[in-house]
């Protein structure tokens, strides 16, 4: 390298140390806040995450649409590249991994024999009809493969509503008899941490992972969801709540009231029945459905595709011909 290059290089190196360290601490502080802790706890989280080895994550895809993985790609704190290069070791994930076929299978076998253990994340439901032939990976049914991978894991996270409760393919009449991870693994005595949502907010995933690494299992509600993120209803935290309290409801989507941001309750909003942090965590760091004028469809509730549907009307009219 010539002298100029060396100069550029030294400067870049200094920048790199500063910037990435700053980003990392910012991320830890953000996580601390998301976990309901003081921001000053960020430094403690940073120390816990800066161990010699990165914790291994094995990410499996079942009957799903990959929307949860896409949601993870939208992470900002940390960026996805920071997550997989500096925070965890993503040892298996079919959507992004370089290896394919036999080499991918070998990577999975190596990961689940890791003496340091691994966390298993499952996105998607598990088809069980006819022994599970409706979903196969490498000639093995998802049911058999996931049982093997989750059975040996230090902890299991069900990523999204499909993994948590069966999701879209489990909606009536559930043609492939798809079930959630918790239901599938019950015979093994494994209860996953459920992170429902369609998709789940990636912030909730990162917060859960950090909690697992620093403080162990988070406190869960009766549906297996971390109370940190799913402790309140969307309705309770909704920015349009003052309109609800005053009885100010938009009657139609074309009305002046809809234009003025009034409550969407009478247009089918399921916020009062839905436990999630959308109004405070936001999606894509910029908005969430109700802010954008779209009623909540209750996507983090078990069975919402049937029980909270039809979505096109006030829930009090639901009985008519649901």
């Amino acid at each position: 390298m010539n002298a100029l290059a060396q100069l550029v290089a030294r400067r870049a190196e200094a920048d790199e140390r500063g910037v990435s360290r700053r980003d990392f601490l910012k991320f830890c502080g953000m996580v601390a806040v998301a976990m309901g802790l003081e921001a000053s706890m960020g430094a403690q989280i940073a120390r816990a995450l800066e161990g010699k080895k990165k914790p291994s994550v094995v990410y499996m895809h079942g009957a799903e649409c990959t929307g949860c993985t896409e949601a993870l790609l939208r992470l900002v704190d940390p960026y996805f590249d920071v997550l997989i290069m500096e925070v965890v070791s993503l040892d298996y994930c079919e959507t992004v991994m370089a290896a394919a076929g036999h080499a991918a299978h070998a990577a999975l076998q190596k990961a689940i024999r890791n003496p340091d253990g691994y966390f298993c994340v499952i996105e998607g439901a598990i088809p069980t009809r006819d022994g599970g032939v409706y979903g196969q990976v490498g000639g093995q049914t998802m049911l058999s493969l996931f049982t093997e991978v989750a059975g040996k894991a230090k902890g299991v996270i069900a990523m999204g509503s499909c993994a948590s409760y069966g999701g879209i393919q489990a909606a009536a009449p559930n043609p492939s008899r798809a079930i959630g991870v918790g239901a599938a693994l019950k015979p093994l005595g494994i209860a996953p941490i459920n992170l429902p949502g369609c998709p789940p907010n990636p912030v909730n995933f990162v917060g859960t992972v950090v909690h697992l690494l620093t403080k162990g299992l988070p406190d869960l509600d009766t549906s297996g969801r971390p109370k940190l993120f799913y402790g309140k209803t969307v309705h309770d935290m909704c920015e349009r709540r003052p309109h609800f309290d005053k009885g100010e409801f938009a009657p139609t989507f074309s009305s002046q009231q809809a234009r003025d941001g009034w409550c969407l309750h009478k247009l089918g909003c399921r916020g009062p029945w839905t436990y999630n942090n959308c109004p405070t965590a936001l999606f894509n760091q910029t908005t969430w459905p109700v802010r954008s004028g779209a009623p909540c469809i209750g996507c983090s509730e078990p069975g919402f595709w049937d029980q909270l549907a039809p979505f096109n009307r006030d829930v009090r009219e639901k009985g008519d011909d649901a």
Binding site: S254, A258, W288, G293, A294
Partner: peptide
């Protein structure tokens, strides 16, 4: 309204005033 899986597009138009 969010990505992935938009919520503002509906039969009749969009809701994102």
């Amino acid at each position: 309204g969010k990505n992935p899986h938009s919520q503002t597009m509906r039969v009749g138009g969009v809701t994102c005033y």
